[in-house]
Amino acid sequence: MSSQKESTARTLTVALLVCLVCSVFVAGAAVALKPTQVENRLLDKQRSILSIAGLAKPGMSGAQVKELFKSTITAKLVDLQTGKFSDAKDPMTFDPLKAAKDPKLSSVLPPEQDIASIKRMERYTTVYLVEKDGEIDTLIMPVRGYGLWSTLYGFIAVKGDLNTVVGMGFYQHAETPGLGGEVDNPKWKGQWPGKTLFDEDGKLAVQVVKGGVDPQSPKAVHQVDALAGATLTSKGVDHLLNFWLGQNGFGPFIANLRAGEA
């Protein structure tokens, strides 16, 4: 009986030691790999920004992406409450998504305003500019909102007229492959360039349309086909664009830019 107890105790001890050693290795690997993971996420975001702005080339290496981003893109901080540029934070290191979780740097959105289902709104965010001869050639704005299964994180790029779309896409989401995941399909993303966000009266008019865009409609210039079989993801994209380009998002900032008061 005593022998069985000693055998069981030794087995449990060995198992515990193995678990401890494995946990140390896993924790050590996680700590060691974290800087690489952070660097890769930053690289993916930079690649996405360049692609949406129409600047990326197929097969670019990480070094090429970094160099092109550094030489063509300017990051600037925007105060979403005032709709103006701000120097309150460093735009290169400031994390709007982290700020959205900080009560000191964000606020809770009332349900009637939260059409993108993001819950909290950060005060500051970072936009990205491509400038030529001191003027804005392309403005890239971050957007996010809930689809069917996940929050979609992406960017929309517009020309210097602050109306014509250069590109739109997402760099992170967990929508269903083959359905909502078709937001990554180049064919769908290819519908966005050339579309306009606002109508002749300056009213936000961009729209994701179920059933397909009628090319004969005067509204077609503002519209993109919804994703086939992905109604809720399509609605999510429509809602997030209307939120971020509206008065509770970048609307006041865009108005200030047009007036030369940003």
Rank of each mutant, 00 (worst) to 15 (best):
V183L: 03
A100K: 11
V221Y: 03
L42M: 12
I52F: 02
T13S: 11
G134H: 02
D79T: 07
Q4R: 10
V165S: 10
T93V: 12
V26W: 09
I118N: 05
Q81F: 11
G28K: 04
L109R: 10
L129V: 09
G147T: 05
L240H: 06
V21S: 07
V208M: 05
T82W: 05
G154T: 06
F243S: 09
K189N: 03
E131M: 04
V38L: 11
L20F: 15
T13F: 13
E135Y: 09
D161P: 00
V65Y: 01
K34P: 06
R144M: 13
V18F: 05
A157H: 03
F85V: 04
G194F: 03
K119Q: 10
V24F: 13
I156L: 13
V21C: 11
P103D: 11
G62Q: 00
V209T: 13
G160F: 04
A29W: 14
K66L: 14
A56S: 07
A29E: 15
S51N: 04
I73Y: 02
Q223A: 11
K66Y: 03
V165H: 06
P252C: 01
A99P: 02
K101W: 01
L148G: 10
P103C: 08
V130G: 00
G260C: 13
P103E: 11
S150H: 04
T93E: 11
L232G: 01
N242R: 14
N40S: 09
K159F: 05
K189P: 03
S2Y: 08
R10E: 15
V224D: 04
L162R: 06
I52C: 09
F253I: 05
D214G: 14
L245M: 12
P177F: 06
T126G: 08
A15W: 06
A99K: 11
V209C: 06
D95H: 12
Q172D: 12
Q207D: 14
S234P: 00
A157S: 08
S106I: 06
K34T: 14
L162A: 03
W188V: 08
S23L: 10
T74M: 02
G246Q: 07
S61L: 03
A88T: 15
L68N: 08
V208W: 02
R41K: 12
K5F: 11
K187P: 01
